[in-house]
């Protein structure tokens, strides 16, 4: 037992300090994937049952609601395509490089870390789809997190609400640049080092600032919920609510920033709505 105990401690040390064991872990994760899939079945089938028992009227109503949402979104993306072209033209006039389209890949949430303290989820795309460590993940409403571990068919995503995660943000209204740190508490991000004189108030939208080159700029991150000035503390306490649904979302998007691309046989699209 002592031998195995020492081996375990050695393994933990290596895993924590270096990345040498990542390959081993990735291979073992493939073997363990069926467990995750089976554990997800009840949640998946209750969704399916819900749909089975819906009346045709309900389903038809839902379909027409989605169709009208789709038309509105299509119109918006057409407009956005035009704006992107104009933006690139203006950037060209100023001598700046044009902004490229980000490729996106749709994935589904198949698991949630059972520890309530760790905000991590598992998605069903992996290295077979060219997912890479550090890749940004978002859902329909905003940035969710980044990929922290990749195995062949699944990946583990660290959410922005996790205590160990920080994301550089920008207040949309005042262009103030701040850092949003996860607190481990659902629906709460803490903005760090906010001066008492900073121009920030409840309801302000936070977008990713793109600083640090980890997350693409301009994606929604959250909305400011609370601004507290406590005398005696060096900074104001500002709490924001994430825009993304985080653990409760079903589908997520993986963003392939400029130099990377998803594998050829994946179902991909461009972030402006066109595909291919």
């Amino acid at each position: 037992m002592l031998g195995l105990g020492l081996l375990s401690i050695a393994l933990m040390f290596v895993d924590h300090v270096t990345g040498w064991l990542d390959g081993t872990r990735a291979v073992m994760t493939v073997a363990v994937t069926p467990v995750i899939v089976i554990a997800d079945l009840p949640r998946r089938s209750t969704r399916g049952l819900g749909e089975l028992f819906s009346s045709r009227g309900n389903l038809r109503g839902r379909i027409s609601q989605l169709e009208s949402e789709l038309i509105l979104l299509r119109v918006k993306t057409e407009k956005m395509a035009a704006l992107t072209v104009e933006n690139n033209r203006l950037r060209g006039l100023l001598g700046s490089a044009a902004k490229l389209q980000d490729n996106v890949l749709v994935a589904e949430l198949i698991g949630v870390n059972p520890d309530p303290e760790d905000q991590q989820v598992v998605i069903d795309k992996g290295s077979a789809d060219n997912v890479y460590v550090g890749q940004p993940v978002l859902d329909a409403r905003g940035l969710m997190g980044q990929v922290m571990e990749v195995s062949q068919f699944t990946s583990r995503v660290l959410l922005i609400s996790d205590q160990t995660h920080s994301i550089p943000v920008q207040v949309m209204r005042s262009n103030l640049r701040l850092i949003a740190q996860g607190t481990g508490i659902d629906q709460q991000l803490e903005l760090l080092h906010v001066n008492f004189t900073a121009d920030i108030k409840v309801g302000d939208q936070l977008l990713s600032s793109g600083l640090g080159n980890r997350f693409p700029a301009g994606y929604p991150v959250g909305v400011v919920d609370r601004v507290d000035y406590e005398p005696g503390k060096p900074f104001a306490e500002v709490i924001a609510r994430p825009s993304a649904r985080l653990e409760r979302t079903r589908h997520v998007l993986l963003v392939f920033t400029e130099s990377r691309s998803p594998s050829a046989n994946s179902d991909t699209g461009n972030s402006d709505g066109s595909s291919g």
């Binding site: 081996l7 375990s8 401690i9 050695a10 393994l11 933990m12 290596v14 895993d15 924590h16 064991l21 081993t24 872990r25 073992m28 994760t29 073997a31 363990v32 467990v35 995750i36 870390n113 059972p114 520890d115 760790d118 991590q120 571990e149 583990r156």
Partner: peptide, 8 residues
């Protein structure tokens, strides 16, 4: 491996 914790 299942929980994503440190190996060991």
């Amino acid at each position: 491996v299942l929980l994503g914790s440190l190996l060991g």
